[in-house]
Amino acid sequence: MNPYWQIFCTFTKIGAFTIGGGYAMLPLIKKDVVEQKKWIDPTEFVDIVAISQSLPGVFAVNLSVLTGYQLKGNKGSIVAALGTILPSFFIILLIAAFFRHFNENVYVMKMFNAIRPAVVALIAVPVFSTAKGIGINLKTVIIPITAALLIWIWGVSPVYIVLVAAAGGLIYGKAKSKLVS
């Protein structure tokens, strides 16, 4: 099968089930692109998440553009982004044109009452597998815990966390290379 078509189909499937914001895309990309198709390796995946988070714009678009680029360059990024956007584009267009009261439908409400907490669980799962994947140990676990608490309790913008973490890593890397040489 044509590789671009493959990327497009995978991201259309992911886009169609990204419910409840961009972070809901993470478990889907991790499962399909990293674990099943093995198109990118787990560390690359974490890097892509880190970069997507620190740039402006829609997180899900950033994520798919970067993943697509890693797979097949410029064209790959375009098909991945199109795939992600198209399902929601058509669904919203239908709702805007014909079903303005879609969110008041009783069956839709019932289904989404149950889907919402499940999606939160889907986002929580990759926290643990990713931590294991990048080799977080008892000493370094303080970094993700501090970052999560700063954002959750004190409402610190993720952008600052990214900047501080990158600077910290840079200094640590430099100090370590000095020790070796």
């Binding site: 409840g20 974490v46 986002i123 931590a131 970052a147 954002i151």
Partner: peptide, 30 residues
């Protein structure tokens, strides 16, 4: 080496970012 160093710090922080997304969604609406 500088970029590699920066990512050394970014990776564990990113795990925290994903965790905070899940925590923030544990609200009364969901």
């Amino acid at each position: 080496p500088y970029v590699a160093g920066a990512f050394l710090g970014l990776r564990p922080a990113t795990v925290g970012l994903i965790a905070s997304a899940a925590l923030l969604l544990m609200n009364k609406e969901n």
